[in-house]
Write a protein that binds this DNA or RNA. Structure first.
Lengths: 352, 352
DNA sequence: CTTTATTGCACAATCGATGGTGCAATAAAT
DNA sequence: ATTTATTGCACCATCGATTGTGCAATAAAG
């Protein structure tokens, strides 16, 4: 219970107190002591001492010497939506389960910031980096490569290392089909009544759009060129797109395929400026799942990306990096309107 | 452009190449060179060299020597809701602005995990810790104190160091009043028709409940004991509470004060099992803001906690720790139904 | 043309943990 | 009773950056 107030105990302190050499103390405390043929009794002695003095190893020193830090990084575009925040939550659980420390940062979808963020994490000697939703995964790859850092892409694929992503084409198809089926045979949806909003020129958007178009062709026999309204990933550009459509057409389309929950927030902004009636017979499909969105006053179909599956697969792959880069597709699930799915929070014990 | 592949350049490498001593190189690269009276020209030379060899300082070594890491920690209960994820987003922006590296971890509202998480962060020599929504802030305080680590409480107050929290009493009052005012004078809300669900026995819940009760007394002249249904912070316990109320009463209360968006998800789960009609004339007030929740098919009033304000205040206070612990209240804002507020995402530039 | 000040930098110890190597003391083999 | 093996641990260099100190070389003062 010695509380040498302020300063943390080091192996040297324990060494002096016990008369045992620092290297032996170190070996005992980091578990390599059997290999070094340390007596069981000495080990016990040191462990007791460590306990008593509340020793914890200085990870900076350890990391400096061993060039491994125990830190595992996750680079996210942003935190503030349900998809990425549950990504963070799931990631953290995995990393902690491996006895390491998660370090989550966001890089705002800016290629340069992505590279700088990676550099910055590398300067802490992180052991691995999960690159999620990067705008320029290959740029980040170059940085990691040079530093000899294990890394993997999630959500958006790169061409230089393994990627684990949502099966966007299939997801896009499923969602589009589900939207169309929301309409009765008596008054079926017409090609020009179903528009896709959001996204940009990235792999995910392109694949979703391809699925969207293919299904429209197959089910409706046609598509129109103007049915794609890429607005980037921001609420406001999406809002503006909705507004300008509304200006021209005098109403919203009967059905919307919205490319992400972030863009969906653009629709919310539009809604706040227009009365309920405009949304009475609207059907929305959104490529992302948000529990609250699922209960909006009009039917909302959502694609829930399998975050748990993606993270798990990524952890599996990151250990076996050799071989040509592959893209692993993880199938997302369609979530019907008015559905509240359990999430990472449900596994927490709740203390009252 | 020398790419000595694999290994990162160190000050020793630059020293050898330039014939200048490591200490001088170090001084130049960390900015203390003027103090050391290094010639401007030598400094330039070294900086060029550093640039050319893509030198970045090894933060582990730097941290070991200086016992400061440049890491600033944020401990969250969970990531996965809009309140905490925007906390993370805002926190990160502040930390990066100070040239440091954010490290965000969650500790599941478990006092022991909170302490262990703190210990773990301390072993990385983090420079400061923001303790957000901790179940046992004073337990975490003890750990930080012993390690001489600057820290501050957010969201839930502790008694041993400064705290920055939402003005829960006022917020509770405002929200309760707004809920009551949603009902017309012709058919006013009765005390037994307004119930509070969610929360537990923590400071925030207690204060909100106090505000809730006070306003009910003042505006309705009465309250009933059974009007408080604490369910902890989990969707499922909240769902069960709604179900069991519904079983007994045959319907939901006309108006609900829900203690957090997490508990609100419990209502969603309840809703998914019951037809629309049950919610036709429901009014909900929720102490948290979520843009999608604001557009549900019944009026939803939300209290938006001023995350930006809280984080900013916390950063201000953490620098001047001496003095008796104080609690700083940050006023939350009432958000009317069908409101989509801008968030941290809006400040990102969007590249198309 | 000395003496003193100033400039510019090199040296070396240090932060805490790790792991290769070497060397006693004890045990086993001859 | 030697020789050989094995056990148990101490020594020391090392990871990369920081910082107090010292000492030349140059400039300023006398």
């Amino acid at each position: 219970m010695k509380n040498d107030s302020k300063k943390k105990a080091t192996i040297y302190d324990l060494s002096v107190i016990s008369g045992i050499s620092p290297s032996t103390v170190s070996a005992v405390l980091n578990g390599t002591w059997r290999k070094r043929r340390i007596k069981e009794s000495t080990a016990d002695l040191i462990r007791d001492l460590a306990e008593k003095h509340q020793y914890t190893t200085n990870r900076q020193a350890q990391g400096l010497r061993s060039s491994r830090s125990g830190l595992v990084g996750l680079m996210l575009p942003v935190y503030d939506n349900r998809y990425f925040s549950s990504m963070a939550q799931t990631f953290e659980a995995h990393v902690r389960r491996h006895g390491q420390c998660p370090i989550v940062v966001s890089s705002s979808r800016d290629p340069q910031e992505e590279r700088e963020t990676a550099e910055s994490l590398i300067s802490y000697s992180i052991d691995a980096l999960f690159v999620c939703g990067a705008t320029d995964p290959d740029g980040v790859h170059a940085v990691c490569e040079k530093a000899g850092l294990k890394h993997i892409n999630i959500d958006l694929p790169g061409s230089r290392t393994h990627s684990v992503i949502s099966d966007n084409y299939t997801g896009g198809r499923i969602l589009t089909e589900a939207i169309i089926r929301q309409f009765s045979a008596g008054d079926p949806l017409q090609p020009e009544e179903l528009l896709l909003f959001g996204g940009r020129n990235d792999h995910a958007s392109r694949e979703r759009i391809r699925g969207f178009r293919d299904v429209k062709q197959e089910m409706m026999g046609a598509d129109i060129d103007a049915s794609i309204q890429p607005t980037g990933y921001s609420p406001n550009t999406a809002r503006i797109a909705f507004e300008s459509f509304y200006e021209k057409a005098g109403r919203l389309p009967r059905a919307l395929f919205i490319n992400s929950s972030i863009n969906f927030e653009g629709l919310l902004r539009f809604m706040s400026a227009h009365p309920h009636e405009n949304f009475a017979d609207l059907v929305v499909g959104c490529y992302d799942y948000d529990p609250f969105a699922s209960f909006l006053p009009f039917p909302v179909l959502m694609m829930r990306q399998d975050v748990e599956g993606m993270i798990a697969k990524a952890f599996e792959l990151i250990e076996e990096l050799p071989g040509p880069p592959q893209i692993h597709l993880i199938r997302p699930d369609l979530v019907l309107p008015r559905t509240a799915l359990p999430g990472p929070l449900d596994s927490l014990k709740d203390i009252d």
